[in-house]
Design a protein around this nucleic acid. Structure first.
Lengths: 175, 175
DNA sequence: TGCAAATGGTTTCACATGTAACTATAACGC
DNA sequence: GCGTTATAGTTACATGTGAAACCATTTGCA
């Protein structure tokens, strides 16, 4: 490799090929897909993505506290708090207080909440099927397996790393 | 007819299993990965993700206009405009005016910009390798292929199908 | 008990981001 | 040429979002 320093030329600098860069591609894909689904229900139900996620977990697990919702949605507790405020306001979630611990809330979908859920959930699943339809059976299986692995252990810990901004990560996002 | 049965049970409603829902998993993965990389350089260089993306494309293609940068980064033009404002301000990008079309800007990394690039690009690549290290060779190949397919045609246009999201559905709650 | 620390949840502040409005230049039609 | 429309880019506004500060309650423990 001729390594001259006439750095007006990219070739000297090994620039990143964004469109082949895995994190970038994941980002594009994720945004495209999520936005596509959100478009289905946002305008129609005045429902944000975070609100929908909260509803989805409450559909499966009734009586969770806000913190537990945050864990299961991998969202931070502030986001959950705000989503819940809107959902309760809209009458889609009932919020009670835990007996024996007045700090905790006890959350569940309301009648109206279930109605929204029962429309949105099939829409979301349909979108997922649409996406998966681009893949054959083999690819679908591999994708699932690959995501399991990638999402699995957060970070293989290495010692001797100098992490200036090493913040702690949310606990128990994907278990 | 929703007689007031006590369908408090999720089983009646086919709730979404978020943690197996493809769009959700993609979102988590993408956010985790991107944030991980961003943590590497944000604090250190006071550089946002959008700014880095702009720099990355300018590293490969000198003399682009802002609009072209927007196209190549899949970001909207406002985001690019703001990123460029900061980058120019920070002396990392030189902005000229296109001769023959005074509306267009002509963009390129500056000396300082290249220096940043030459530190960040390897960091980003290292992170990508780290991520890929969780997969064996087969999986890596499949992943690449799968992403190509998923990212490829926005919507496979099928005759008789209305592709873009405007899927209608009767508002009656399903049972 | 009593008091410090921890925990659930909300509020505040600063900032990022998207949409729409806006400016300036260029292209088009006549 | 002159007016209309399109395009490049920026600005303004409204909204979303995370970090940290903040209350209320509970837990730990001496």
């Amino acid at each position: 490799m001729p390594a001259d320093q006439q750095h007006v030329h990219p070739s000297d600098h090994a620039p990143l090929e964004l469109e082949r860069f895995l994190p970038y591609r994941l980002s594009i894909l994720s945004n495209t897909v999520s936005q596509g689904i959100a478009d289905d229900y946002q305008a129609r139900f005045d429902l944000s993505v975070t609100e929908w996620r909260v509803m989805a977990v409450l559909a499966r697990f009734e009586g969770l506290s806000a913190r537990e919702v945050a864990e299961r949605t991998a969202m931070d507790k502030v986001a959950v708090s705000r989503a819940l405020a809107r959902l309760v306001e809209a009458g889609r979630v009932n919020r009670g207080t835990h007996e024996g611990d007045k700090r905790r809330s006890v959350l569940a979908l309301s009648e109206a909440g279930w109605e929204v859920h029962d429309v949105v959930a099939p829409m979301a699943r349909a979108r997922e099927r649409e996406l998966l339809a681009k893949l054959d059976a083999d690819e679908q299986a591999w994708l699932s397996r690959i995501l399991d692995k990638l999402l699995g252990p957060p970070v293989p810990p290495r010692s001797g790393e100098q992490g200036t901004g090493n913040r702690e990560r949310e606990s128990a996002a994907s278990a």
